[in-house]
Simulated assay, not measured.
Amino acid sequence: MLTRRSTLLGAAGLALATMVAGGPAAALEDVTIAYVEWSDAVVATNIIKTVLEQEGYNVKTVPLSAAAMWQAVASGEADAMVAAWLPATHQAYFEKLKDQVVDLGPNVTGAKIGWAVPTYVEDVNSMEDLKNKAAEFKGQVIGIDPGAGLMKASEKAIQEYDLPLKLIEGSDATMVAALKDAYNRKEPIIVTTWTPHWMHSSFDLKYLEDPKGVFGSEETVNTVVRKGLKEDDPKLYAILDNFALSLDQEQAVMLENEQPGANPAETAKKWVEANKSTVESWVP
């Protein structure tokens, strides 16, 4: 017959064995995810937020600049981000903070950055073509938020190709607004752009060839978490590690978010509901 003492010892032994085997640890209740307000990051962040909330977490999402996003995860103010563009776009942030964060690898592959023009601009196909065509574009390249990796690469491109162009700072929204206005008028325009982005589904655009490789080759969008997260909550860590979307999946949700009255949180919930098997593969 088991005594109370032997029962308690058995339970304690089982708990210890579970912990040693990598089983459940004390789970976090509150999770903070940092992100940049780019169309793709909004989609990915809202989708992972929805999934984590379904698993019982209280999730706070915090919009920041790219530099502040990396710093928030490195300092532990945020638990994770799913918007780290590597190896080129966020290279400077990664090199500075790589010892203070954990890179879980890609959640999206096939990403790309560069400059694009509408396809009706037939006489410009390469960055090199712009040297003698700047006047057609009012001497401007329409950019996004200052400090973004894409903007730093754009500044470098202007120097490398010796282009008489000025890079205009703004945001994802102001860049798209300028593109839409020019497109409707069939006017030439150069925009900083990236894939995945919904505008490639809404406008006929072409990336300009980059023979000097200033914008790098194919990139990935990675999930990066703070140090110690795996020990604090193995399940949360596993979900974030397993999280992955295809370019088509992400761009489809981005396009939905651009419809009148769309709410990114609601479109994310709709996607999660419609893709249960995918979501289940992320949750251990």
Rank of each mutant, 00 (worst) to 15 (best):
E155D: 09
A111G: 10
L104E: 03
G149K: 00
L165P: 01
E136P: 12
T192V: 02
G105V: 06
M175C: 12
K180Y: 10
K166D: 14
Q159G: 07
K152R: 06
G143V: 13
D129T: 02
Y120L: 13
K180V: 09
K138Y: 11
D129F: 03
K112R: 15
G216E: 11
H197L: 01
I190E: 05
D129G: 04
A182K: 10
E218G: 04
A178Q: 12
K133N: 11
F215D: 04
A111Y: 01
P196E: 05
S201Q: 10
K133D: 12
Y161A: 08
G139Q: 14
V225I: 07
L229N: 08
E218K: 02
F137L: 13
P164G: 03
K133F: 11
V224N: 06
G147N: 01
L167Q: 09
A157S: 08
E136Q: 14
T119V: 11
A177S: 14
Y120T: 15
I158Y: 05
D210K: 02
K212H: 13
V108E: 02
M151W: 01
S202G: 10
V108C: 04
E136R: 06
E231C: 09
S202K: 05
P188Q: 14
W198E: 01
Y207P: 07
N125K: 12
K156E: 14
N184M: 13
M175F: 07
K180D: 15
Q159V: 09
Y207S: 06
Y120C: 15
P106Q: 09
A148E: 15
N184I: 13
L104Q: 02
K186C: 13
I190G: 05
W115E: 06
A148T: 15
S201I: 05
K227S: 15
S217E: 12
W115D: 04
E209W: 00
L179T: 08
K212V: 11
G110W: 00
L179Q: 08
K156P: 03
A135C: 10
A135K: 12
R185K: 03
H200Q: 07
R226L: 06
E219F: 03
A134Y: 12
E155R: 02
L229D: 08
P106R: 04
N125S: 12
G170C: 04
G149R: 02
T223Y: 00
L163D: 06
E231L: 11
D162H: 06
A153V: 10
P196R: 00
N125E: 14
P234D: 07
Y161W: 07
G139I: 14
M199E: 14
P211I: 08
E160W: 02
I144Q: 15
L104T: 03
H200A: 01
D123Y: 02
D210M: 08
M175S: 10
T193C: 10
T193W: 00
